[in-house]
Lab assay of single mutants.
Amino acid sequence: MTFKLIINGKTLKGETTTEAVDAATAEKVFKQYANDNGLDGEWTYDDATKTFTITE
């Protein structure tokens, strides 16, 4: 399955995708991506669209 991450950061904005077997796996990938890029914010997830959002 394809999951999307929408980034609404103070300095970084955009989106990225990952292929994962489930939402929990995708969340780990996206949280590592956010950590690697210095993002810290509030996370939301929409199961209907398989989309995570981080807002700083």
Rank of each mutant, 00 (worst) to 15 (best):
T2P: 09
F3V: 01
K4Q: 04
K4F: 05
L5H: 00
L5R: 00
L5M: 08
I6W: 07
I6G: 02
I6R: 09
I6A: 05
I7L: 15
I7Y: 15
N8P: 03
G9I: 07
K10F: 13
K10A: 13
T11R: 04
T11A: 12
L12N: 06
K13C: 06
K13E: 15
K13L: 15
G14E: 08
E15F: 09
E15L: 02
E15N: 02
T16A: 13
T16R: 11
T17L: 15
T17H: 11
T17Y: 12
T18Q: 06
E19S: 10
E19Y: 12
A20N: 04
A20D: 03
V21W: 13
V21I: 07
A23L: 07
A24C: 05
T25S: 09
T25N: 08
T25D: 12
A26H: 00
E27K: 10
E27I: 10
K28T: 15
V29Q: 09
V29E: 10
V29C: 05
F30T: 00
K31G: 05
K31W: 09
K31Q: 13
K31A: 07
K31D: 03
Q32G: 09
Q32V: 13
Y33F: 13
Y33T: 03
N35P: 01
N35Q: 10
D36H: 14
N37C: 05
N37S: 11
N37E: 11
G38Q: 08
G38R: 09
G38P: 01
G38E: 13
L39V: 10
L39A: 05
L39R: 02
D40M: 06
D40P: 05
G41T: 02
G41Q: 02
E42T: 15
E42A: 14
E42M: 11
Y45G: 00
Y45C: 01
Y45F: 04
Y45E: 00
Y45S: 01
D46Y: 05
D46I: 12
D46F: 05
D47A: 13
A48L: 11
A48C: 05
A48T: 15
T49F: 12
K50Q: 07
T51L: 04
T53Y: 05
T53L: 05
T53C: 04
I54A: 02
I54H: 02
I54D: 00
T55Y: 05
T55L: 06
E56H: 04
E56Q: 04
